[in-house]
Amino acid sequence: MRDTFQPAVYLLASHRQGTLYVGVPSNLMQRLHQHREGLIAGFTSDYGGHRLVWFEQHVTMEHAITREKRIKKWDRAWKITLIEQANPDWRDLAVDFGVEPLPPHRIVKG
């Protein structure tokens, strides 16, 4: 990741083929920390979506928000295709950036 303060769009999953969450932060690593520590009340804390399965960086927050809004309107199947094109094993991509791995039992083979 070039810069952790760069706007991004991301998808979190509760497990493989599980509940999906789309978000947009200015600092992806900080936002992941907030999700994993339960510091953000709401959807991800209710449904356990803490596994980073896809993300893309953007030059401006405006571009990231526009992309997030488009993805949120997509059918679930399209979101799954987006994930599987870049991350077919639904790996937790946050581990690549030094984030502590989540317990392996949270991934269910589909």
Rank of each mutant, 00 (worst) to 15 (best):
M1P: 10
M1S: 12
R2K: 14
D3S: 14
D3W: 11
T4P: 11
T4R: 15
F5R: 15
F5M: 04
F5S: 11
F5C: 13
Q6A: 10
Q6I: 03
Q6K: 15
P7W: 09
A8D: 06
V9L: 06
V9S: 12
V9W: 00
Y10K: 00
L11E: 11
L11P: 05
S14W: 09
S14R: 14
R16D: 01
Q17R: 15
G18L: 05
Y21V: 04
V22H: 01
G23T: 02
G23C: 05
V24E: 07
V24S: 05
V24Q: 04
P25Y: 02
S26I: 12
Q30E: 09
R31Y: 05
R31W: 01
L32T: 10
L32C: 09
L32G: 04
H33S: 09
Q34P: 08
Q34L: 03
R36F: 06
R36V: 14
G38F: 04
G38Y: 01
L39T: 10
I40P: 02
F43I: 02
T44M: 08
T44F: 01
D46T: 09
D46N: 15
Y47P: 00
Y47T: 13
G48C: 12
G49A: 11
H50S: 06
H50D: 13
E56I: 09
Q57G: 09
Q57C: 01
Q57E: 15
Q57K: 08
H58S: 01
V59C: 09
V59I: 13
T60Q: 06
E62F: 06
H63S: 12
H63F: 07
H63G: 06
I65R: 10
T66K: 14
E68L: 09
K69E: 07
K69L: 12
R70M: 04
I71M: 15
I71F: 06
I71Q: 01
I71P: 00
W74T: 01
W74G: 03
W78D: 04
K79I: 11
K79R: 15
T81R: 02
L82V: 07
L82W: 02
E84M: 10
E84R: 08
Q85N: 12
A86E: 10
N87Q: 02
P88I: 03
P88E: 02
D89Y: 04
D89T: 08
D89M: 08
W90S: 07
R91L: 13
R91F: 05
D92F: 04
D92P: 07
D92V: 08
D92N: 13
L93H: 07
L93N: 03
A94W: 07
A94F: 00
D96I: 05
D96R: 13
D96E: 14
F97E: 10
F97I: 06
G98Q: 06
P101K: 12
P101Y: 06
L102M: 09
P104K: 14
H105S: 13
I107Q: 10
V108L: 07
K109T: 15
K109F: 03
G110M: 11
